[in-house]
């Protein structure tokens, strides 16, 4: 049923750190690889070696330039996959019940056997998190690696999403937002984790950590003493050297 569960026991999701993401696309490709081989139909590619290659991906990395009112422009890499919204419009619009949000952990999934490929859920999703696979005709989306996170065939340490496991910069974190002490909850609290398009009322579970302030015009006055000259020219420098050295008890450390 596409009614949303009133609450879910856990709220699993990702924290994505926009301060640290270097835009390497590692998460994109590991996601493609894992999900091609695992949950549901493979993620197909059309015209793979031709003029207009186009395939299904569940996670994609955008980049944006931000021009502040003053100062230099910043560039921010922006990975985006399903946010596993609490109020997921993609679920309620689904006519077949293929789309659903799991009661136990809040993961939003598509049951591919039931999907008629009408595309309506993708229309309803504000985030572009769903893609209809052109070969299979079913809706694909991030599964939060539901076939990894509980998978007893994987070593316990590997029971995390493929994209999180692979992220070289450590910009992706996985966990339970229902637990206020979880790493993801703490990161969200400490770093001001934010929702995307909160005005649409989807209540995304995934949170984005905003980039820390960059290029802060440091107060050179505070730093100035560090450059107070001991000498203007080399003679003075040598004199200072002599003094400074006699203060060092012959290679002290």
């Amino acid at each position: 049923m596409t009614e949303l569960p009133k609450t879910t026991a856990r709220k699993l999701g990702l924290v994505i750190d926009l301060d640290t993401c270097v835009g390497c696309h590692a998460c994109v490709v590991s996601c493609k690889g894992w999900n091609t081989e695992n949950y549901g139909a493979p993620l197909s590619d059309q015209d793979a070696y031709g003029e207009a290659p186009s395939g299904t991906f569940l996670n994609r990395v955008h980049s944006y330039e931000v021009q502040p009112a003053e100062g230099t422009a910043k560039l921010i890499h922006f990975p985006k996959s399903c946010l596993h919204c609490e109020d997921a419009p993609c679920v309620t619009v689904c006519p077949t019940g293929a789309s659903y949000k799991r009661t136990e952990d809040g993961i939003v999934l598509v049951n591919e056997q039931d999907c008629i490929g009408c595309g309506l859920c993708a229309w309803a999703c504000p985030y572009g998190a769903r893609e209809l696979d052109a070969a299979e005709g079913v809706m694909k989306k991030c599964t939060l690696c539901v076939d990894r996170i509980y998978n007893e065939n994987l070593p316990e340490i590997d029971r995390e999403p493929a994209c999180v496991r692979t992220c070289p910069a450590g910009a992706r974190h996985f966990g339970d937002f229902a637990d206020p002490d979880s790493k993801v909850s703490r990161l969200t609290a400490d770093r001001g984790g934010m929702d995307l398009m909160p005005e649409l009322g989807t209540k995304p579970v995934n949170k984005y950590l905003p980039p820390r302030p960059r290029d802060a015009a440091q107060d050179i006055d505070i730093l100035a003493p560090y450059l107070a000259p001991v000498a203007e020219e080399s003679k003075g420098f040598v004199a200072w050297l002599d003094k400074a050295l006699s203060a060092i008890p012959g290679g002290s450390n």
């Binding site: 049923m1 799991r102 999934l109 539901v146 998978n151």
Partner: peptide, 14 residues
């Protein structure tokens, strides 16, 4: 019980 969800094998062979 309005919310039904399919059974899922969360431990498929890797």
């Amino acid at each position: 019980m309005t919310h039904r969800q399919p059974h899922l094998d969360t431990s498929p062979k890797v």
